[in-house]
Design a protein around this nucleic acid. Sequence first.
DNA 1: CTAACATGCAACCCGGAGGTTGCATAATGA
DNA 2: TCATTATGCAACCTCCGGGTTGCATGTTAG
Lengths: 112, 112
Amino acid sequence: MRAEIAARSLRRHAPIFAALGDATRLGLLTKLSAGSELSIAQLTAGTPLTRQAITKHLRVLQSAGLVRNVRHGRENCFELEPRRLDEARRALDSISRQWDEALDRLKAFVEK
Amino acid sequence: MRAEIAARSLRRHAPIFAALGDATRLGLLTKLSAGSELSIAQLTAGTPLTRQAITKHLRVLQSAGLVRNVRHGRENCFELEPRRLDEARRALDSISRQWDEALDRLKAFVEK
DNA sequence: CTAACATGCAACCCGGAGGTTGCATAATGA
DNA sequence: TCATTATGCAACCTCCGGGTTGCATGTTAG
């Protein structure tokens, strides 16, 4: 059944959404969306949190594939990985598209 | 600063993403995306979980605005609320758009 | 009217997420 | 070389999320 396949491929994206489901992490992503790579210290500056907390959040984002790290000497810099964002967007698209099609079928049925 | 405003409006969507960040809840949404409202019992059928667990998940989805409930006699039925899905999609758009613009600026700077 | 069905509520359990502190270690700049 | 800077690692704490069980209540079909 096609719906089963869709459900599986959708469930696969749960970790991405979970990674996005935290205000601190969304803040980090917006900082990174400015374009330049930022070190952990730079990403920590301005937040009320500890560097360790930020580090943990970055690990979550990284293992969700939303972010990539590049070492420069003693500093560990992070930059956005926009492919995964597109994946997540597409997943949401798939739900709402399915929904729209269902409404169309319903409408067609009623008007028949 | 424009970036600050963007960051705030993005952080506001954290609860939506958090609600989406669970495989069980994504499964419920796909079931509901078929179009017809479904009772709690119907949504529970086929899952290895208890009715109570499903009920809790539905509450999470509801308080995130992703789902709406309609009572029919003794049964409590749920249906999709697609507006919030669009909101979430738009939020992801805003990040990747900002990212793309940053890359464009960088490219223009290099080629100058 | 009454048995069966669909839920709601509350208490309880457990593991992991989010945070902190303290200490060890690699790189750097003067 | 040496103090400083930027991190990594590990232990620990607290609280909430995901689940279950047991019992009470509202609905419905016969």
